[in-house]
Write a protein that binds this DNA or RNA. Structure first.
Lengths: 138, 138
DNA sequence: TAAAACGTTGGAGTGCACTCGAAGCAAGTA
DNA sequence: TACTTGCTTCGAGTGCACTCCAACGTTTTA
């Protein structure tokens, strides 16, 4: 892989663009997945070199970071695509986007509550196993 | 469906056994899923009527409740089956079971942290949408 | 310059967790 | 008795989110 070497722009740290394998390394996604994201409309338009290879920008990286967060929320890919489409559609979709995010936020809160609930059950079970006498725990 | 009518045992509330559709109604799982659980080894032995129909006990219901909690943790079904096998194997697997549960517990905690992290990102995004001026939010 | 590494595409395949269908008994109801 | 409902099994189908393949072109390294 060598030192990342491409057309640099700014003087410090910021890169003009990244190849697909560089982005894969940075995001933890595979190149396959990155192409698939583009195919399904989850990426804004990605630049190409004169020979047609993808050149990801800093902005693309930022977007992928956010998409990664959305993925961690458990949001379905289809909904992320919807969100991406709203972004592409322009400023008049701001309200819709905010709503989508707020719905997601509520879902996340609900999921956290749910998990804390399971945690309580797990703790009870585990404490039963702690007492080394032979009840009939399931 | 009528009133649940089967061989009752105790005087108040507790039932001797339940048909598959009763259990489906009680758990929210489908009859298909219940049979599938049994096929893959996720259920302890379920009693049958003289005609071969399943008769779920209170104990089975309790087990299904616990399995439901495990499912909510995000534990893969294969691991739940492993746990079920350990329970069937007898008392000498207690340590192993406790470890499995503790691993699950750690996973749940990690997931909660992860979700709280995404929550922070969502809140920042949402607050950007709140200010109704045209930046370029993604 | 030659070899190795990396990039492209469309389409097919994978693994998970269900989910459903078909064909055929069995039990309760009008 | 006829009908409706529910149960059985096996096997196939679904939806999601990737994941991989083949065949070929490009770029970097020795």
């Amino acid at each position: 892989m060598s030192v990342i070497a491409s057309t640099a722009t700014s003087t410090s740290g910021t890169r003009a663009h990244y190849t697909i394998s560089e982005v894969a390394a940075l995001t933890g996604l595979t190149a396959h997945t990155l192409r698939w994201y583009e195919r399904i409309g989850l990426m804004p338009h990605v630049d190409r070199s004169h020979t047609g290879q993808r050149r990801f920008s800093e902005r693309d990286l930022g977007w992928l970071g956010f998409v990664g967060k959305l993925r961690l929320t458990g949001m379905p890919v289809a909904d992320m695509v919807t969100y991406a489409e709203l972004v592409r559609a322009g400023d008049h979709t701001r309200d819709e986007r905010r709503e989508l995010l707020e719905t997601t936020r509520r879902d996340v809160l609900a999921r956290i509550t749910e998990l804390q609930d399971t945690l309580a059950v797990l703790d009870i079970k585990i404490s039963h196993y702690g007492t080394a006498c032979g009840g009939t725990p399931t």
